[in-house]
């Protein structure tokens, strides 16, 4: 299942308080990032996966109905082979990419939005912060997958259920990351100065606190999205995937159900590689971004 971040993916530098140098800083980050082969390759893979998900209807017909060629190994006609019902595994993986990318984007968007708001509000309003950090700690110490399973089973498996369930248990991790950064930011003098200028707290938070924690948010987007993919695949592997949509986890689940998992290696290899490609490149991307953001790695 998902594991916590490597240290290197965590926040490593002090926040960048001024909004003035922001564009210059981001340009320097991009320049440093472009020189990192691993980062660029990861970005390339992610872009390719997004393209596959958008172009799925062009790349392969939707695998439905039964075929005559059952459990055939990869061949010219079926590059990834066929499954126990004679469906094209290549088509399943392509359409599975679409679902995985959708879940990753939607679930992490919800988790990031909610997690950031909770973190920033908590950092800004100390009275709420104690409560928020307790809830975050408690949630993070529970076995989340069994809880996700219970809810998904009760509500009934569908793509939107999976997105909501994954998002509901991903935001505490975002809050934990963003909160530690936001706590440092709200103590900075310019936030005090902003308090003197206005009593509009929402404006201070939106204009000064959120921009300062944006780098952490960028890292959490990537990490949360890749975790969402793993959680969704895990749910689908247990039979809680949307039965009407192809997903990488569902291919593995059906392979297990039909008993073909052990005899037909191509049924498990290709969806597994797809999951690995997405999650690994997301992780590497966040590491490369963190390195690139470190001013010490910027060329003069």
């Amino acid at each position: 299942m998902t594991t916590p971040l490597p240290e290197s993916a965590l926040v490593d530098s002090t926040p960048e308080p001024s909004a003035i140098g922001a564009t210059r800083a981001s340009r320097a980050t991009w320049r440093a990032f472009r020189r990192m082969p691993l980062g660029m390759i990861s970005l390339g893979i992610l872009v390719a996966l997004v393209l596959v998900s958008v172009l799925a209807p062009v790349l392969a017909p939707y695998p439905a109905g039964y075929g005559m060629d059952v459990l055939r190994p990869p061949s010219a006609a079926h590059v990834f082979g066929t499954d126990a019902l004679g469906r094209d595994v290549y088509g399943e993986v392509v359409w599975g990419t679409q679902q995985s990318v959708l879940v990753a984007v939607a679930a992490s968007a919800i988790a990031i939005a909610f997690g950031t708001v909770v973190a920033v509000v908590g950092a800004y309003v100390p009275k709420l912060d104690a409560l928020i950090s307790v809830v975050v700690d408690l949630t993070l110490s529970l076995p989340v997958l069994p809880l996700m399973i219970l809810i998904a089973a009760l509500v009934g498996p569908s793509t939107s259920t999976i997105i909501l369930v994954v998002a509901a248990f991903s935001w505490p991790e975002v809050t934990r990351l963003v909160r530690s950064q936001a706590l440092a930011v709200v103590k900075l003098p310019y936030v005090d100065a902003a308090r003197l200028m206005t009593r509009n707290h929402a404006w201070i938070v939106g204009r000064h606190v959120v921009p300062a924690v944006t780098p952490v948010i960028v890292v959490s987007v990537v990490v949360t999205a890749s975790r969402a993919v793993l959680s969704a695949a895990g749910l689908a592997f247990l039979g809680l995937g949307d039965p009407t949509t192809w997903s990488w986890g569902r291919i593995l689940y059906e392979a297990q159900q039909s008993g073909a998992m052990v005899s037909a290696w191509w049924l498990t290899l290709f969806p597994s590689l797809a999951i690995l490609a997405l999650v690994l490149s997301a992780t590497l991307l966040s590491i490369a971004y963190n390195d690139a953001r470190n001013p010490r790695n910027h060329a003069r």
């Binding site: 299942m1 594991t3 490597p6 890749s226 793993l230 695949a233 895990g234 592997f237 593995l252 297990q256 998992m261 498990t268 597994s272 999951i275 690995l276 999650v279 690994l280 997301a282 992780t283 590497l284 590491i287």
Partner: peptide, 14 residues
């Protein structure tokens, strides 16, 4: 880093 990106069932199946 690769170890962190593995999907458990995939590892098990391999």
């Amino acid at each position: 880093v690769t170890g962190q990106s593995l999907f458990v069932p995939s590892v098990g199946i391999v």
